[in-house]
């Protein structure tokens, strides 16, 4: 593996880890539903970052398609979960009125 590939993987993967930590922090300290949901999605984005980073194999080499597919699946799952949680939140807001 060339240095360029390794540095890219570490840079993007490391950024992913930072996103995960920011999301986790936000999830733990903030009570409002919307902030928790954004936090969870941020964590998800961080994990997807890591997966995309390890898929990278250099500018001239085709990337590993498996992590790309996992990320696509993960995105759809994350969208579904977020939509359901928002509907829960909306229902609670309606009950308050």
């Amino acid at each position: 593996m060339t240095g360029q590939v390794l540095y890219s993987q570490l840079f993007y993967g490391g950024s992913g880890i930072i996103l995960v930590l920011l999301g986790l922090w936000s999830f733990l300290v903030h009570a409002p539903l919307l902030r928790k949901l954004i936090a969870i999605n941020l964590m998800g984005a961080g994990v997807f970052h890591m997966l995309v980073a390890i898929a990278y194999r250099g500018i001239d080499t085709s990337p590993d398609p498996v992590p790309h597919a996992l990320v696509l699946t993960g995105i759809v799952v994350a969208v579904s979960a977020t939509a359901l949680a928002l509907a829960f939140g909306k229902r609670l807001d309606q009950d308050d009125d």
């Binding site: 999830f27 539903l33 928790k36 949901l37 969870i40 964590m43 998800g44 994990v47 993960g74 979960a81 359901l84 949680a85 829960f88 939140g89 609670l92």
Partner: peptide
């Protein structure tokens, strides 16, 4: 809703 959020956090950790 709380169960859903806790479950999501758990899955995220697993992932």
């Amino acid at each position: 809703l709380r169960y859903l959020l806790v479950g999501l956090l758990g899955s995220m950790s697993y992932l």
